[in-house]
Design a protein around this nucleic acid. Structure first.
Lengths: 136, 136
DNA sequence: CTAATTGCAAAAGCTTTGCAGCGCA
DNA sequence: TGCGCTGCAAAGCTTTTGCAATTAG
């Protein structure tokens, strides 16, 4: 969590990115968005509503850069669009309803530990998890 | 598992689908594909190579119908395309490498049971699971 | 025979890319 | 000032849809 807006520029620099206005605005939105998981379109809409002059392509580019820098995590829950979530370190699992798209989060140390071991056996580390569920 | 090709038509009928040639061929491919997880394009390619006259749109339509009928499970591992897997009942988890796209499967009763409980609390049931991992 | 199904081509989305101009360091 | 970044528009992809022709039951 980052409550100090003035620290955003240095966060960006640490990530090797110039502290440009679009990037600062977008990171700020990601940190304070009401919903934890947002689409590129969501971010774009917020920017436009705030009167910012930003193109959708820039939003996509910035989000991709943030992902590569480890600032955000990209999920493909629905398949037809990506959602982005700010990376605050704490690992957690996602439950996604395939009917309504709703996302629940939960954290289960036992599951996490067992998943970690399986990944380790493959010589890798976990990025994110998602369990699809439905009413059926 | 279904080793008898002649049973495919009845499987389709049970699912409320006419036993048309494209559907029979596609279900057959899903049952015998070398790789468990295939894209619509993969299926289409196999059909064409086998000399079948089938359109890609039909493959997508049939796979979607199969999904709704519970015959296959659709995953959105990569985000840029869906992969389909025949539903043989046994639940299992997926580990997907976000770098190379490789899919590993594993089954952990403890994880499964705990996931099931979380889903139950939300009044739903699990469809599929996916853990994204990478070398990082 | 009749309704369901298919193929083709076109459309629809989401996301990426090319390029000229602008802005941060 | 220089290189990186942005905006716009166009392209690229996967997936869906409209419609006339075909096929299963």
């Amino acid at each position: 969590m980052n409550e100090n807006p003035d620290q955003i520029p240095s966060d960006l620099k640490k990530a090797g990115l110039k502290a440009t206005l679009p990037r600062i605005r977008i990171l700020n939105i990601l940190e304070h968005s009401a919903q934890r998981h947002v689409t590129a379109e969501d971010v774009y809409r917020e920017l436009v509503q705030a009167g910012e002059e930003v193109g959708l392509a820039t939003v996509y580019r910035v989000l991709t850069q943030f992902e590569q820098a480890g600032l955000v995590i990209r999920h493909n829950f629905e398949g037809d669009r990506s959602v982005f979530e700010i990376n605050q370190g704490g690992h957690h699992d996602h439950l996604v309803c395939v009917e309504c798209g709703k996302v629940f989060e939960f954290h289960d140390p036992t599951i996490e530990e067992r998943q970690r071991k399986v990944a380790e056996k493959a010589g890798r580390s976990i990025r994110s998890t998602c369990t699809a569920f439905a009413r059926a």
